[in-house]
Each structure stands twice: as structure tokens, then as C-alpha cells.
Design a protein around this nucleic acid. Sequence first.
DNA 1: TGCGATTAAATCGTGTCAGACCTAATCTCA
DNA 2: TGAGATTAGGTCTGACACGATTTAATCGCA
Lengths: 143, 143
Amino acid sequence: MDRSLTTDDLLCFSVYAVNHAISRLYRPLLAPLGLTYPQYLVLVALWDRDQRRVNDLGAELQLDSNTLTPLLKRMEAAGLVTRQRNPEDERSLIVTLTAKGRDLQSHAGALTTCVQDAMGEDLDELAALRDRLHALRDRLEQQ
Amino acid sequence: MDRSLTTDDLLCFSVYAVNHAISRLYRPLLAPLGLTYPQYLVLVALWDRDQRRVNDLGAELQLDSNTLTPLLKRMEAAGLVTRQRNPEDERSLIVTLTAKGRDLQSHAGALTTCVQDAMGEDLDELAALRDRLHALRDRLEQQ
DNA sequence: TGCGATTAAATCGTGTCAGACCTAATCTCA
DNA sequence: TGAGATTAGGTCTGACACGATTTAATCGCA
């Protein structure tokens, strides 16, 4: 190892580059739906479990209120979600899908198929890669 | 596959989450050096090959001038690089490391060791993961 | 030679991200 | 009960990231 470090050598850079590439892949697919990539991830989380608190969404997506608050306000302005204080604890705010937000789920299947096609044919390998990344994330969060 | 899609199912989300986790890992390590994570990646690229054009850096880092121009201006203000027009083609701008920018390379080794420790002990597995991601990036860029 | 096409950065607007801080509501326990 | 601690969101500032557009320099070819 007597040669200089290169971006190609860094796992962190591979992750960085793939994240950008995925974001660029999703952008034109999501644009017709009026969604950005992080907004789409919020929808995926809500399709799984609706009526979540901001912190709850943040824990799943690894985002804090400084990111989520304006993002959710934009989604509310776009008519995708509603934001209501919890009557039982006025500190917390419940994010709920509107009919419009729920209906977008019907597009999600075609979308993921399209993305998987772009990533390559081997679904098993993609799933294995996903699981390795998941494990890596867990190790990083233990720090 | 009759159940709903979850963020955990999406490879794209795993990449997104790991990218955030890595960024958070680097932040406190880079802060004492006065660097952000993308600025560090620019330095890594320049340590490998100095005196690069903006487009050349952008091709390696997958960034366009709209991102790189202000980023490089901040690095110039911090005394890490110089920005000079190419006398032979005034359209292009040559980014060159200063002594200060070059000297930071001596910290890079300790930094990558520290990051590898956080990611886990098995370097071979990390290298394999990196190569799989690299291949995935190539497939995505073919689109 | 000269004019349209191309190229390289820069600029502009919008949307994430994160750290630091603020405000309001709730909890806790003496 | 009530003061301090905690919790949940919101705000502010600075730094990416990207699509679209602009400006300046160069190229290509009649």
C-alpha cells in the first residue's frame, strides 16, 4: 500500500456516488408525480404505516425536524399529507396521508420495477447488497 | 409479495441511509481540519492528480459546475486550493492544491483507518462491498 | 475571415441536510 | 402544587445538489 489514496479506493465514495446515481435515476421518474426523492421516501414510510409523528418518521428516515418540518410543509402544500397536532399531547404532530397521497402508491410498483431494471437483472444480488448495507448501517450507528 | 413496500425493502433507501451515516461519521473527524465531506472528496481527487479542470473533477466526483464552483470558491477562501484560468484555453479553470491543501494529506491515513474501524473489522468484506457498489454505479450510468 | 455551434464555468432558484438554538407542552418528584 | 428537566417541533444559518439558463472563449467550416 505504497501508492496514494484514490476516490475509487474509498467505500464511502462508492456509497456517495451510487446515492447520487440513484437520486438522478429517480428524479425524472418522480418529477411527473411532483415528488422529490426524499418526499417519495416519506410516502413509502407512510404507505407502510400512516398517521406517524414527525419524530417517528425521522427515526425511520434518519432525518431530524430541521429537515422534515419544511419537507412536510411542502408535501402538505402539495396536498399529499395533513399535519395535525395530537389532541392528547399537543407537543406532537401527526402526519396523515390524504387520498391523493395514498393514491400515489399505485404508481410505486411500476416505479420500483423500473428502478430494478436500471440496476440490473439479478434481484437476489441486489437483495444481498441491500442486506450488507443494512448491516453496515447498523455497525455505523453503534458508534 | 402481497404485502406493502417498506423502506427496509428498498436498496435505494439502504444506500441513502448508509450515505447519511457515513457523512455523520466523517463530520466530526473533518471539522477540526475545517473540511466538509464533499470538500474532503475534492482533496482526495486532487491528492491523486493535481491541477485538474473543474469539469475533470466533476466527472470523477459526479458533480456539475453549479455545485463545484461555490464549493471550490470556499476551498480557495480557506487557502486549500488556487483557481486559475488556463492560459491556453481561457474557458477552462485549473484547480491547484496549495501547500496547505497538500499537507492535509498527512491526516488522511489516520482518518481512513478511523473510518474503517467504525465500519467493522473485516477489510476484505468492505472491499467486496465497495466493488459491488462500483459495478452497480456503472450499470446505473449506462442508462 | 467570420458566423453559427460547441464548450467551460458561472449564476439562479429550489430543495434537501445538519448544527445550534428557541418555544411550547408535558412530565417528575420533592 | 410548582419549578426544573425533558420532549416535540420549529427556526436560522451555512453548505451541498441539481435543473435551467447565461456568459465568455474557442472551434469548425463555408
